[in-house]
């Protein structure tokens, strides 16, 4: 079979397979993500108000203990092996808030603990979270440059 014929056979199959594939329920997933993600954020807001009213925190600083508590809960749920089950249901609802970031680090740390503290946990903890930090920093850098140039041109 020539390469062209092979490609056509491949494409025919890929289209056929795609047609038979069970579809990802995007709409239902979005609704679930919205509800669960919203619930996580509402809970976070509740925590923030709690720290604001009952402890010595102000509007700016009350976010810190709130994040710490959410991270702690996410890490504990990861360790107990239930976070991934919640995520299968909630999708982006548990991935987008700070809990998703905590889960990505805790799950990688748990996964590689049999390879030792340095080469296992240390080397792999940021396996999933690493790209977020890298591209977050790169994006911040680019935006900062654009802002600086803009200020020079327009604001000068």
């Amino acid at each position: 079979m020539s390469q062209k014929q092979q490609e056509s056979v491949n494409q025919t199959y890929q289209k056929f397979a795609q047609k038979q594939e069970p579809k990802i329920p995007v709409a239902a997933n979005c609704i679930k993500a919205f509800l669960i993600g919203g619930a996580v954020c509402t809970f976070g807001q509740g925590l923030r108000s709690f720290f604001l009213h009952f402890f010595n925190f102000n509007e700016q600083t009350s976010g810190d203990p709130t994040l710490a508590v959410l991270i702690l809960i996410a890490v504990l749920l990861t360790g107990f092996g239930v976070y991934d089950n919640i995520s299968q249901f909630a999708g982006a609802g548990t991935a987008v808030p700070v809990t998703g970031f905590a889960n990505s680090m805790a799950s990688a740390a748990i996964e590689y603990r049999t390879e030792g503290i340095v080469l296992g946990i240390g080397a792999n903890m940021f396996k999933l979270a690493g790209p977020v930090i890298v591209f977050g920093t790169v994006a911040a850098f680019l935006i900062a440059i654009i802002k600086t140039i803009w200020m020079q041109v327009a604001g000068g």
Binding site: P22, D84, G91, N103, S104, I110, Y112, L128
Partner: peptide, 12 residues
């Protein structure tokens, strides 16, 4: 991914 990582697996 790590087994405890919360990714949503597709039906396939």
């Amino acid at each position: 991914y790590p087994t405890e990582y919360g990714s949503q697996k597709p039906p396939t």
